[in-house]
Design a protein around this nucleic acid. Sequence first.
DNA 1: GATCAGCCTTGATCGAAATCAATTTCGGAC
DNA 2: GTCCGAAATTGATTTCGATCAAGGCTGATC
Lengths: 248, 248
Amino acid sequence: MAANDQALAHVDCGNCPIRHRAVCARCEGDELRQLEEMKYYRTYDAGQTVVWSGDKMDFVASVVEGIATLSQTMEDGRTQMVGLLLPSDFVGRPGRDTAAYDVVATTRLTVCCFRKKPFEQMMQDTPHIGQRLLEMTLDELDAAREWMLLLGRKTAREKIASLLAIIARRDASLNLASITGRVVFDLPLTREAMADYLGLTLETVSRQISALKRDGVIQLEGKRHITIPDMQQLLDETGDDTDGGMLA
Amino acid sequence: MAANDQALAHVDCGNCPIRHRAVCARCEGDELRQLEEMKYYRTYDAGQTVVWSGDKMDFVASVVEGIATLSQTMEDGRTQMVGLLLPSDFVGRPGRDTAAYDVVATTRLTVCCFRKKPFEQMMQDTPHIGQRLLEMTLDELDAAREWMLLLGRKTAREKIASLLAIIARRDASLNLASITGRVVFDLPLTREAMADYLGLTLETVSRQISALKRDGVIQLEGKRHITIPDMQQLLDETGDDTDGGMLA
DNA sequence: GATCAGCCTTGATCGAAATCAATTTCGGAC
DNA sequence: GTCCGAAATTGATTTCGATCAAGGCTGATC
């Protein structure tokens, strides 16, 4: 049965992010069993809200499959996405019992949950879970700061190119393909969601995508299927330092 | 002598942030002694760069006194500040040996340093240091995300008001004053630094400050000394939800 | 296969902030 | 006090992206 398949996948470290990214590599048998007993799954349809900002949240979770977004909304309705959750990303904050952001599934979403209290206890007893969580949080902080540069200083075209590059790179890493040359993928976000992420309006997003298409940087099939003929050309549009990076 | 005074301050937990915020409350005698032996101080003049992005960084540190900024710069010179480091904030990332950002002292700055290797070892041996660091990192992540909303969606006026409110609130908490009513403080940043933080130009910063002054929201004495006659009025300008917050 | 709704594109116009360009103010050194 | 230079202000103009406004495409439903 499906539930069992998933459980097996976990034992094999194939899928469950908490297991895979935070725990598995260093877990002992007892700890594995403990985690195994604590976890449960939830799935959401595309468009469903997982939690609203301010809601009570008595679990932590990690994304198994699908994509979710974190966003903040001002009273007058202006919204800014502050995080994109991909498989293996962590949701929820130990030591806080209300959600700080709206969490929305943008595709069909499966998460692996742990009730907060026992998870926190487990963190206490098993230091490397906390250590792994610290590493992940530091990575997220770096990502957030990179996004601050994008939001504060990049032009609309650079913003779009950057977002496409990030999505392309993620797909490339999944496919184990090289980062240069041709890349093909489907956009997991609507134009509106892209706009919310980039601090733009959906019209500007649409226009800039059209412009990149017109300039041959990307090719579009339908509204979501994208081909990047030359990844380097896209990277040149992002404004980022791309020439090999510093080696020191 | 000064050095000794500082050492005493640390023993008393009065000042050193790593001690005070991350460790002290739960540290045992041995751990205290170990930290005490590891630490050393550095001071920088206003305007001095502590480390350049990409530089090797073999220490972690925490701010004892003064203010530093974290910023990212694009090849063409556009820069975005991604963090403001106040006393007790942590600098450096365990598990990474090059700096990811430029760290610049904006006032005279004193930091308390620990060489990375032994600090990491200490983290291994003393779980609650890592736990405290996780809490601090999660706080920083929240702050970064709040800043993303500011950068992506707020108007220039709202940005200035938000920055002033943050600085005012910080000073207020130091003075144990209430958050409402009259607040007086000195700006620790130049207009240019404010612009880098807010994703604006320095001219726009100047114009908006003049506008807030003209509208009676703030009073200016010289270029840096600011009086806020009515804190609530300033908060109303930030665009943030301020009416008591949600209570659920 | 018609209808409809959600998503997307494109055009016209507007407006906020950037840019370019002088001054002015202020704080410190002498 | 005077002088100097950095920091800040202010004005004129431009520009990029927002806003307002029509449609167009596509896929689901009946």
